[in-house]
Design a protein around this nucleic acid. Sequence first.
DNA 1: ATCCAATATCAGTTAGACAGATTTCTGATA
DNA 2: TATCAGAAATCTGTCTAACTGATATTGGAT
Lengths: 225, 225
Amino acid sequence: MHEERLADRAYAGIVELINTDDLQIGDRLPSETRLAEMFGMSRTVVREALVRLASDGFTEARRGAGSFVKRRPSERLGSHLPMQNLAATMGSYEVRLVLEAEAARLAAQRRSAEQMLVIERAMDALRAALQASGPAHVEDMELHRAIFEATANPIFVSSFDHMHDEIDRILRAGVDISRSRPPAAINAMIEEHELVVDAIRAQDGDAAALAMRWHLWQGRKRLMP
Amino acid sequence: MHEERLADRAYAGIVELINTDDLQIGDRLPSETRLAEMFGMSRTVVREALVRLASDGFTEARRGAGSFVKRRPSERLGSHLPMQNLAATMGSYEVRLVLEAEAARLAAQRRSAEQMLVIERAMDALRAALQASGPAHVEDMELHRAIFEATANPIFVSSFDHMHDEIDRILRAGVDISRSRPPAAINAMIEEHELVVDAIRAQDGDAAALAMRWHLWQGRKRLMP
DNA sequence: ATCCAATATCAGTTAGACAGATTTCTGATA
DNA sequence: TATCAGAAATCTGTCTAACTGATATTGGAT
């Protein structure tokens, strides 16, 4: 698993500090030197944690002044997704519904034989990953990206990349969304993807768009029942 | 101004390195020491950039082994030629048709009073610019962007920004698209935009989406009769 | 009370060092 | 020749110590 690095502990430590000390937005964190001696690590390590905190949008460093809380890390509340995360996730599905359904339609209409092969391979990889009950996020993304590439429209592809960057950024800033999946859900996820791939193989644009809408809708329900 | 930090340049430099050297997923990056001397900075700064790259999911560091490409940063498709300008433009309308029509629908359903005001002002500015027969590209973009902002979905907004960056990039690489417009076209452009704004004002989602589709379709015809 | 200058503090950056993990090279063995 | 274990080289992770320039604070003069 995660062989823990010191910087990870520092990251967690600072998040905990913000929560336990109830630091509000705009409040200043202890200085890097101070944090280093608090955690019993070097300033280098604390700095690495702060860089990542800032990259995740939680803190902001002002040179000469200090590091400040920019957005409070959401506390983990059992199985509930934090409000902010929820809104962001709903928003992402909204955009995906629009973009991915049409991408699936175009892919079905235009796919080349080579592109179909890439899609089939991505589907196989996803099916294997899901059946192994392992994390399948990467494989899922590969398949969806392959579909965008089959649209033969570079702007579509770059839109996909951008959208996923944004979604990743938002989700990573919050709670880990990976959760154990019941076996029924695994089969459902495979089947939904297969419907999309089948439609693209059959070059049926309407069916592909519909299947993709269905898949995204089900995904949304799985995440937020 | 953003006084740029060294680490930002290192981050950009590494991204560029991955693209120009065409490093594939799994490939190893130069070592931190090597990158430091390549960029003429200390290893510390390069390290900070790598930490952020890893945090963004682009790279992965394996202790003792090196840093590896995990996910390729979205390629700026600048390498493609101006000859493909026509195809790229068609492609851009394809994406806009998908994204903007739904944005208009959501904007109509959700717009606040303040957002409606911003849209109205943008419409006024566009009308004035068009009637003065001057360049109206900026005003046009402002209006379209205001509509995206009224969706109250930050991912939609960022998708708009990204899409326009890409389109601008492609178009600017080729011939200047600004051409003299016959007066009839000016009135048509104003009217099309007004239809969209009217629908958003009336909070009629279907009408807004339809009007936006119509507008984009007409724009495509104007550009490529 | 107000303004300004000296002072203290802080993030950003540099250099050099060492531990521990991993890869690569090398040479001996089967 | 092919293989494999050990040695050497390389790499990330961590630490120390220092300096710079930006920012905040303090204290004194007005």
